[in-house]
Design a protein around this nucleic acid. Structure first.
Length: 802
DNA sequence: TCGCATCCTG
DNA sequence: CAGGATGCGA
């Protein structure tokens, strides 16, 4: 919006300030904090999170467990070493995130290298007192391997390792002979475990976050080379404390790191014990890793099988024929997949042979799945014997075959379910909208009290009171026919076009539907309703009611109403109006949902006036109890309720202005009985008349002054006729089409008003800022009765066709 | 304080 | 014609 002048701006700002205050209050803390410190703090939060994640990335153990780990790590130092060590290991392996998750940030080779390196370091030269170098420089993968990396590695490795540098010193004292003896063994083990880990990191379930230094194939190669170098290095170091061979700075850093871990002074026996335990643990870890790897393998197999199942469901039709062919293909595929993601070839066979037993686990699982599927098929297809998997000649191929069949069956079952659900939904909808005319439930205008609602629907005991209540809409009665929709707010039910909610209650509510569904039918075209529902109210959350309510034309507010039936063909009468409405839709500036295009016709012939007039009645009754018998008085029953004011309503209001300049809200409700009244509608109508008056008085003042300027001296000289300028202006404003004969009384009132203005101006009262008030007081008493015809929602047609 | 009416502005 | 601001009366 353009800002015009300072005052406007000021006003705006004032208002805005108010709003902002409110916002501050509601959004309050976050807004205030975000003003200055908010972003910073949030950044800090996220930064800390990142740090934590970095911890996770940098360490096998996330920081959640680090405290405990540290405690555990500290344990051995105080004497309960063995127990806690194995506990730590178990804990590590049992971590909720699973081992492989923890491994993720670690290139498998690196982990193992680190682990083994730590182990080796213990058997490395006892060059104590070496300077400590930043461990980050040791990173073999180029990823920043922070100190905690080492620590957490070692924490998983051995508790003592966490106690760097002093605690580590204990662990890092070593036995040279033992190293020599174990070196080869260790190397072999290491290679093996590295391969395992590589295979793990190949596994599809192991996602190596990009940029986290994950072991990519090329990197792995380099890694392995580096590790070999390291081993060579260690060998050299192990045979003598000679100067480290000339190596790259990286290598020297690595060595320095190793030296950093070297002990200063420790008792040999304890170290030996520790070393022995380390060996044990190493073995244990290896076993565990192997197990883990096997489990991963099984997981992959499972994935393969499920993929096959879904493939078969996707391409059903030819899978029966192709099953045999696919068998080998599938088995080959799965084998290939395993081998591909597995162990770089070497050791894979041995590792797999280790775990043939555990291969049974997925099979068990699959058996269970098959059993379930069979059960399902029996239930759904009357126990048709299903083709069982043939003899289990091949372990790999058998699963896919039967799984294909079962998967296909599963797919069929699902399809059947979906089809039935969909057909149910469709039937429901068709029933709802295509049933023969029955008493139409109608959209209620705002019902201030539930009693009104009951009054209206109370005549019919079949209408559940609750169902005719407001449900989730504050001002809309959801007819009982909506109950089949799960009693959920209609908007959501319509918004969600999926069958889900419907399906859930389809059968249980079916007869509800059949009884209540008919209430919808009427003259509506079936196709009309979905659009109206989805387009106008579908997106309206039940908790949110727009200021100008969505139309519920399709849902007349009331079901079978024993109310007076006037047998009025409302549709015929209303349709012209609705046509007008649809023509003028675009010009309508009202914010309410423009429901007029559906407009004005959902009344049934049998229960016509009871809808609209009864509605207005209920409204009026709620606010002024003396009008309860208006339904009998109303000669124009038979229209439906609109949720908003249409251009025709505006036109009608303008015409009404010829009779009344100060209509009461009750009068408005009476005369706009086809509108579902609420506060906003009332305000809008009042505003309309206020605007009419504004224009009217402006014209009066203008012409009064003009008369004065023209030399008129006495009010008697002033008269308002149908050919005077004033009349034309007014007529142009309120009766633009000039298709309404302005009542004579209006001319009189205009004349009186003009003279009042004239007198006031002549008397100089216009210096008083509120000088018009006296005039208003006079004019407000000049209202005349508005013809009854204006009470008809279709008065425009009637009036304009007369 | 609320509702209404007017005034002002767009 | 609508929205906001303001003023006034109950």
């Amino acid at each position: 919006m353009p800002d015009h002048d300072h005052e406007f701006l000021l006003n705006r700002q004032t208002k805005r300030r108010r709003v902002d205050i409110g916002v501050k209050r509601t959004v309050g803390t976050s807004a205030a904090s975000s003003a200055v410190s908010g972003p910073a703090s949030s950044f800090e939060i996220s930064a800390s999170r990142v740090a934590k994640n970095a911890g996770i990335f940098g360490a096998m153990n996330s920081h959640h467990g680090s405290d405990q780990d540290m405690l555990d790590c500290a344990g051995p130092q105080f004497g309960e070493g063995g127990e806690s060590k194995s506990n730590v290991l178990r804990k590590l392996l049992k971590r909720a995130n699973s081992y492989e998750d923890a491994m993720v940030p670690f290139p498998g080779a690196t982990i193992i290298s680190q682990l083994l390196k730590n182990n080796m370091a213990k058997s490395g030269p006892g060059a104590g007192g070496e300077s400590t170098f930043p461990s980050s420089a040791v990173s073999s993968t180029g990823s920043e391997a922070p100190q905690e990396d080492v620590c957490s590695n070692s924490s998983q490795d051995s508790p003592q390792e966490c106690l760097s540098p002093f605690g580590r010193a204990a662990a890092c004292h070593f036995d040279v002979e033992r190293l020599n003896v174990n070196d080869e063994h260790l190397r072999a083990k290491r290679a093996r475990v590295e391969n395992i880990i590589r295979g793990m990191s190949h596994s599809p379930s192991v996602v190596v976050p990009p940029g986290s230094g994950g072991a990519r194939p090329a990197e792995r190669e380099r890694e392995r080379d580096r590790d070999r170098e390291r081993e060579r290095e260690r060998e050299e170091e192990g045979h003598g404390d000679g100067p480290p061979p000339p190596s790259s700075p990286r290598e020297s850093f690595r060595e320095n790191k190793r030296k950093q871990k070297l002990p200063q002074q420790q008792q040999q026996s304890f170290q030996q014990l520790v070393s022995a335990r380390k060996e044990q643990k190493q073995e244990e870890r290896r076993q565990l890793k192997l197990q883990l790897e096997d489990m991963q393998k099984q997981l992959r197999q499972l994935q393969e099988k499920f993929f096959q199942i879904y493939d078969s469901t996707d391409s059903e039709g030819n899978d029966l024929e192709n099953d045999g062919g696919n068998l080998s293909e599938d088995s080959g595929r799965s084998d290939a997949g395993i081998a591909d993601g597995d162990l770089d070839g070497q050791d894979s066979a041995a590792d797999r042979s280790d775990n043939e037993m555990s291969d049974m686990d997925p099979e068990h699982f699959l058996d269970r799945a098959r059993a379930m599927l069979r059960e399902q098929s029996l239930l759904t297809e009357g126990g048709k014997p299903k083709r069982e998997g043939p003899m289990r000649g091949k372990n790999q191929g058998q699963g896919p075959i039967s799984m294909r069949a079962e998967g296909k069956q599963l797919a069929e079952t699902l399809k059947q379910e979906l089809n039935s659900a969909m057909s149910q939904v469709v039937d429901t909808i068709v029933k709802v909208f295509a049933k023969p005319p029955r008493p139409l439930p109608q959209v209620f205008p705002p019902l201030p009290t539930p009693q009104d609602c009951f009054t209206m629907s109370g005549d019919n005991p079949s209408v559940h009171p609750a169902s005719s209540r407001l449900h989730s809409f504050s001002d809309v009665i959801i007819p009982s026919s909506m109950e089949p929709f799960g009693g959920v707010p209609v908007p959501s039910a319509n918004d969600q076009t999926e069958a889900l909610p419907l399906v859930v209650r389809k059968s249980s509510s079916d007869h509800h539907q059949s009884s209540a569904v008919g209430a919808h039918g009427g003259h509506h075209h079936p196709s009309l309703h979905p659009s109206s529902l989805s387009g106008n109210m579908g997106f309206t959350p039940s908790s949110f009611r727009p200021p100008f309510h969505f139309p519920l034309i399709g849902y007349p507010f009331q079901g079978p109403l024993g109310a007076p039936a006037a047998g009025y063909p409302g549709k015929d009468r209303a349709s012209p109006d609705s046509m007008d409405l649809s023509r003028e839709t675009t010009s309508l500036r009202t914010k309410m949902a423009s429901n007029h295009h559906l407009g004005h016709r959902s009344c049934s012939p049998t229960h016509p006036g009871s809808t609209a007039e009864g509605l207005s009645l209920s409204l009026i009754k709620s606010e002024c109890g003396d009008l309860q018998d208006m339904s009998d008085m109303s000669p124009y029953p038979g229209s439906t309720i609109q949720e908003g004011l249409s251009p025709n309503h505006l036109k009608k209001a303008k015409l009404m202005f010829f009779y009344t300049r100060y209509p009461s809200s009750n009068m408005l409700k009476m005369f706009f009985s086809d509108v579902k009244f609420n506060r906003c509608i009332t305000s809008q109508l009042i505003k309309w008349f206020s605007n009419f008056r504004e224009f009217y008085y402006i014209q009066m003042e203008k012409f009064a002054r003009q008369a004065i300027n023209d030399g008129v001296t006495t009010p008697e000289e002033i008269s308002v006729s149908r050919d005077c300028e004033l009349y034309r202006a007014l007529n142009m404003h309120y009766n633009k089409a000039n298709d309404f004969e302005v009542p004579e009384r209006f001319l009189e009132v205009a004349q009186i008003t003009l003279r009042e203005f004239f007198n006031a101006i002549v008397a100089g009262k216009d210096v008083d800022p509120s000088w018009k008030k006296a005039i208003y007081k006079v004019i407000c008493k000049l209202d005349s009765e508005v013809p009854e015809i204006f009470k008809s929602p279709n008065c425009l047609q009637e009036l304009l066709h007369e």
